[in-house]
Design a protein around this nucleic acid. Sequence first.
RNA 1: GGGCGCGUAGCUCAGUGGGAGAGCGCUCGCUUCACACGCGAGAAGUCGCAAGUUCAAUCCUUGCCGUGCCCACCA
Length: 865
Amino acid sequence: MTESASDPEPLPSQFRPAEVEGPLYERWVERGYFTADPHSAKPPFSLVIPPPNVTGSLHIGHALEQSMMDAITRRARMRGSDVLWLPGMDHASIGVQTLVERHLAETEGKGRFDYPRAEFIEKSWVWKERYGGQILAQMRRLGDGVDWSRERFTLDDGLSQAVQTIFKRLYDDDLIYRAERIINWCPRDLTALSDIEVDHAEEPGELVSIRYGDGAASIVVATTRAETMLGDTAVVVHPDDERYRHLVGTEVALPLTNRMIPILADEHVDPAFGTGAVKVTPAHDPNDFEIGRRHGLPALTIMNERAVITAPGPFAGLDRLEARYSVVAALREDGRIVAEKRPYLHSVGHCSKCDTIVEPRLSLQWWVRVETLARAAADAVREGRVVIEPASLAPRYFQWVENLRDWCISRQLWWGHRIPVWYSPDGDDACFGPDETPPAGWTQDEDVLDTWFSSALWPFSTLGWPADTEDLRRYYPTTVLVTGYDILFFWVVRMMLFGLYAMDGAVPFETVVLHGLVRDSSGKKMSKSRGNVVDPLLWIDEYGADAVRLSLLQGANPGADQAINEEWVVGARNFGTKLWNATRFAMLNGATVEGELPGAGALTGADAWIVSRLHRVIAQVDALYDRFEFAKIVDLLYHFAWDEVCDWYLELAKVTLADTELAQATRRVLGEVLDALLRLLHPLIPFVTETLWTALTGGESVVIAAWPTGDPARVDRGAEAAIEALQAVVNEVRRFRSDQGLRPSQRVPARFAGLGASERDARALLRLTEPGEGFARTAALTTAGGVRIEFDLSGAIDIAAERTRLAKDLAAAEKEKAVNSAKLGNAAFTAKAPDAVVAKVRERVATAEADLERVRAALAALPPG
RNA sequence: GGGCGCGUAGCUCAGUGGGAGAGCGCUCGCUUCACACGCGAGAAGUCGCAAGUUCAAUCCUUGCCGUGCCCACCA
C-alpha cells in the first residue's frame, strides 16, 4: 500500500472482501444488531435455522439456504421488525455415531462395544465440539445474522427436557407404544431404522424357483432370498387360483429341514407373478409378517442381529449372503431348483448412513401412533394456516402426510436422547418426566430416540418449551421456515405433527419456503463419488461471501434445483466491483444524502427519470419478496443497478455535474439513488453494501437502516418517456457509428433536429460536436421519435455498408407492417380480439409505417455511390 | 405400478393466449477522465414431435418421444 494520508479518494480503487468481511461481521455481532429483544415495541419476526448436523462442515446447499434466510431476516429487520433468527445444530444421532465409530476404528482400532457407553458418549461430545465449531465459523464467514445469544443444540439440557416431556405426554395419551414388528435393521450399525432412513436401489440379484414337497403334493415357490426358506412357516396361494385349490389346507415338506408347513390361501398373493405361490417367512419379511399374523403362523427368527444364520444345521454361522449361495447349492444338489434367473433386477434397501443392505427384522421397538397427528398436520395446510411456497410442492406434502405409517422411534444406539422409560425388576414399564424420579431398582430403556424426534420439536423446544417463556410466547409460531424440498418428509412433516400436538393446535410456522438442490454446472447432483462437490468456503476465500451469496440467490427459483459454477461466482463478484466503482464515482463527484430531495416536479432530465425508476423498482422488489422469488429479485436489482444506474444514469450525470446550475440536484439524486440501491441490495450482499453505504452516507450501519419505501408519487411518466426517447436516439447513433467503424474516441460533427432539451446529453454520450465551418451533409439519420441527425463525415462514410443496413431495416419494417395489416384485415380478429389487442396492432402498423418513412428518407439522403 | 415435474440461444435457466428473454460463452471495435472484474456494437433459437381448441398457441387439451424426481411394490 503506497497510498498517502492525503489521498483524496474516499474509497480505495478496489474492494477486498477478505480484508473487511471478518471485522464487519464481528462488529455487527458486538453491537447486538442480531439480538432479538422480546421487550421491543416492534412486531416480532422469527425463524429457526434448520439445524445443520454436526457431522462435518457446511456444503453449498447450506450456503444457499442460509443466504435465503439471511436475506429474509435482514430485510425484515430493516422494515422495522424485532427479528429472531435462532441458530443451532442437530446431534444427528446415527450420523454422528457412525462417523465417531469409523474415527475410533481408524485411530484406536476399536469398535463401539470396546468402550463403556459413557466413554463412547464422551468421545462423541469431543467430536461435536470440533465439528460444531467448524460449522459455526462457516456461518460467520457467510455473514449469517443469527442471534448467537440464543444458540441451541438438540442434545443440550433444555432440549433434552423438551424431548422427555413430549415423550411422556404422548405415552400418557397412548400415542407412543411398544410393539414387536418387522423393522428395517442395519446389521452393521446394529440398530433399527425408520422407513425413510432406507435408500432403495435397483440391483441385480437372483430369482430362484424351488420345489417344496414331492409328487402331486409339491408346489414351486420363487424367491430372491433363498436363505430365508430356513424360516418359512407356510406357503400361500391366491384363494381363487384353480391351480392350487386342491393343495390349500394340506401340508408340504420344507426342503433341507424336517419341518412340515401348511399351504394356505391369502388375498395378498398375485397369481400372475412367478408361480403364484409364495413362501412365507414371517420373521424376515414385512409382507410375510402380515400374512403370518392373519393366519396365526409362528415367526421363526433364523438370523442374529449381524445377519448371521442361527438356525441349527449346516448353515448356522454363515453370513446371510454366504448362506444364500450355500442354500441354493444344497437345493440344487437335491434337485429342487426348478428355475434360476440371474441376474434378476430388483429393488434392494440400504442403510442411508453406511450403505449396508438392510435386513427386515422382527423386533420389539417403540412407535409413534401417527394417525390423529397426521390428520391435524394435513388439515393445517389444507386450511391455509400453514402456507407452502411454492404451492406446486404442496401435493408432495399431502402425498406424504396422508400415507404416513406409524413411526419407529427407537434406535439401538448410544448417541442421542435416551428413551425415558424405566422397567421394574418384574418387567413392568413406566414413563417418567424430567422432574420425576423412577423408583429405586428400576432400569432405564437402553435405546435412544430417532434423531428426528428431537428435530421435530425444534421450533418450540429452542424457545424454552415446555417452560412458558417470554421467547416462546413472543416468537412462536415462527414466521417462516426455509428448507429444502428433500427434507419435507424427514423434518417438516414431523415438526407439524409435534408442533400442533405440543402447542395446542398452534402451527410451528406460518409459511414454509422450499428451495431446491444445488447441482454442478451441468445440472448433476453433487456427490463425493462424482468428485463434483464444491466447498463454498473456497469460493468465499477467493471471491468473497457476497459473491457466493449472490450467485446462489441468482439461481434460486422457488422449489427448483439450480446449477452453480465458478463462473457464476465470478460474475457476482464483478457486480460487487461495479457497485464499488459506481459509489466511488459518486463520492468523487460530491454525491450527498444531506438535505431534502427536490420534489418530483423540481427534478429534470435524467435525475427525474432515475428517481422514478427507483421507486418502481422498490415496489417490484417488495412484491417479489412476498413470494420469495430470489432469482427474480437479484435479476431486477442487477439490471437496475448495472444497466440503468451505471450505464445510463452515471453517464448522463457526468453532463449535469459539469453544469453549475444542475450539479447540486444531481449530487443529491446520486446520493439518494445509491443510498436506496445499497439498502435494497444489503440483504443479498451485506458486506460490500455495508462498506459502501457507511462511506457514502456516514451512517452507523446499513444493517439497521430503514428499508426503502416505494412512493407512487415519485413515478414520473414524462421523465421516463423523455429518457426513453433519448436512449432510442443514442442507440441508433451508436449502431451507426459502430457500423461505420468510427472510433469511440473520434469526435464527429453533427447537426440535430427535434431532440429538444436532450440534445446536450446525446452529444455528450455520442461524442458529437457542433458543426463548424464548411459543414457538408454527407449522411442523415432519423429515428423513431422523429429526430433527425446529420453528419459531416468528410467522405469517410462507408455508403455501401450503410445502404446494406438500411435495406435490412426496410425489410424488417415492411414485414412488420404486412403481418399486422393482415391481422387487421381478418374480420374474425377485429371482431373477437380484445379492443386493447386490436389497438396495439393498429399502433404497430402505424409505427412500421413511420419506420418505413424514416428509413426511406435516410436512404434518399445517402450520397450516391 | 401410482404421482409430480421438465424439454425455450452453445451452456445454465427465466417467461407469456396477441411483438422470443437473461447471465455466461461467442464475433467485431475500444487504454472514452468510476470500473478491462470494464465500455460500445453484433451474431445466434422450426420455444421436443404430432394432432386438437381458439380470430390467434412457445403458453391451454390429448397423444407420442426424451429426461429427472418422489412414493409403493417387486415372493
